[in-house]
Design a protein around this nucleic acid. Structure first.
Ligand code: FES
Ligand code: FES
Lengths: 150, 150
DNA sequence: ATTATTTGATACTAAATTAGTATCAGTTTA
DNA sequence: TAAACTGATACTAATTTAGTATCAAATAAT
């Protein structure tokens, strides 16, 4: 049961990389090589991040993408939502009118509670926090990359 | 981002149905009709529940499945684990030795925290609790079915 | 102006997972 | 011995996720 998919994972890595040296504009190519993410795949992910307003872009030589908002104000929840839709544990479909008392459904109720909890927790983790933590650890540890799912 | 898949969902519905009238043994056919779950699919799900020890089975006429353990001692986490594996938000693969300080990875750390939280919460929801709640609500509401994902 | 570098838009393929179906052998009861 | 069951297992279909490819348009440097 995996919660983050590659889109989300790569997006987070890219955002963190962009936030590491503030104000930096990086090309998809550079990011792809730095974070070891398939170029074309990353391109599409970046395009979504641009559409969502989290990063801005500039075409042409010397162009690339940069954070459009303070990394403190980007949280993991946002990114999950962009690539995987809102957290929802399960959803009743009223399939063929069978579910006549959705409002009273206990399982649904419990599940929504947990769903909310997960949502809140992911909201609490900002890219900014990840960056500052990474930097602090980096002082000692010295590793370049960011994170790798699978 | 859906957390429960159909296997888990149907399994839970079956377990709840079995627990509703204690000691009852029901055939896959009856369960399938009662809960509106595709018969052959449910059969395989039940077979897994049997293997896992949560229910026992009896072959032949009048046979079927029944809960093997107290519904209070079956929780949603158990069922998720059977059908979707352990909760794991994401996992570092050490792909090509790039991830040299997994232990210090901040994203991983945060994610494991949330993972643990989700796990704990699902552990807290027992089939028994769902049943008693359902019964209480059922007094008033009067609906037959259990829950429906999608 | 021309060329190299970059994103924008979008279509496509491949792999993996999830959902669902089918079949036949063996057990139990009537 | 027939009917109602589960056990085991193989199979197909649908959906989602992951990844590739292409071409147009923008920008900057030469
Ligand atoms: S990148 Fe490997 S553990 Fe985070
Ligand atoms: S079954 Fe419809 S809400 Fe639970």
């Amino acid at each position: 049961m995996k919660i983050l998919n590659k889109h989300t994972d790569y997006a987070l890595r890219a955002l963190i990389a962009l936030g590491m040296n503030p104000g930096s504009r990086m090309s998809a190519k550079a990011l792809s090589e730095g974070q070891v993410i398939p170029y074309q795949f990353l391109r599409r992910i970046l395009q979504e991040l641009i559409r969502s307003g989290l990063v801005n872009s500039k075409q042409g030589v010397g162009g690339g993408v940069a954070l459009a908002v303070d990394p403190e104000r980007i949280n993991v929840r946002d990114v999950i939502e962009i690539f995987q839709g809102p957290v929802q544990v399960s959803e009743c479909m009223f399939r063929k009118q069978l579910c006549s008392n959705r409002a009273n459904c206990v399982l649904r109720h419990e599940i929504m509670r947990i769903e909310q909890l997960v949502d809140d927790e992911f909201s609490r983790v900002s890219v900014g926090k990840l960056i500052t933590d990474l930097k602090r650890v980096g002082e000692a540890g010295k590793s370049r990359h960011v994170h790798e799912t699978n």
